[in-house]
Amino acid sequence: MTSKEPKLFANESSESDSLFKASLPFRYNLDKVFAIVTWAATLSGLIVLGILLIDILIDGFSRLDWSFITSYPSRRAASAGILSPLVGSIWILVVTALIAFPLGVGAGIYLEEYSNDNWFTRLVEINIANLAAVPSIIYGLLGLQVFVRWFQPITNGRSILSGALTLALLILPIIIIGTREALRTVPSSLRQAGFALGATRWQVIREHVFPLALPGILTGTILALSRAIGETAPLIVIGALTFITFLPSISPQGLQSPFTVLPIQIYDWVSRPQVEFHNNAASGIIVLMLLLLVMNATAIFLRNKFQKSR
């Protein structure tokens, strides 16, 4: 093949030339094939996603108006709304964040900055990595026994607090791992410089390490919370209801009230026979997706801010 290619350079010595077989046309073709294969892979994912979105938008758009957002669920599909599940989701989200953020970030800081490398920390590390992979329904079962039953006097059983505690446990490993990764991106020369000035470990972390790692930590936390907000299985296990026609009071007592969340309401509507309820479900999905979109946009915003400040 090479012998047929025209000479590219006048002084090509035929001796070293015979050692290299360029076969450029073949390599270019192979390149093209792989470009097409990867493009097709991307496209098929996008098509499925697109069909899904369009289908939901068609079904759900008709029902999506302000009254859908401000009405309680109802037996009549036309007047049923999403208010209590939406508020429930936001409650769960906030309480979960309040529990999981300090615990996860604290544990991450301890493991990354304070702990020595001994058998205990290695054991903890392995466990955290494994916990991140445990199916969410297992967390639901744990939450049912521990938070709903044992902690009944505090949580009042099947309440927002039980749900939030369960979801906090679920995303704790993700936050810990995310925190550690964010801390690891802070160069150790900065820590050394701090110590060399006579700073204690906590002063170095608070003043230099944590501020630099914070956007990364927040990004990880928000992505973990996005996972929590879409979780259905563990909340079904701990007994979230599907028909709630009141809002929890904004007070510590609110924590103890029964609740429902968007994915559970959607699941409930989908499983009914009437088509009208299916359309309600589609509208609910749109609301849930908008909520997720806002959260992910926040995460991207924080990450960009982070990269700029470096």
Binding site: P187, S189, L190, Q192, A193, G194, F195, A196, L197, G198, A199, T200, E207, H208, P211, L212, S309
Partner: peptide, 18 residues
Amino acid sequence: EEVRRRIGMVFQKPTPFS
């Protein structure tokens, strides 16, 4: 920490805090 205050250090790579 008190020892390190009295014996300061400057590193090879400049390490200003952000």
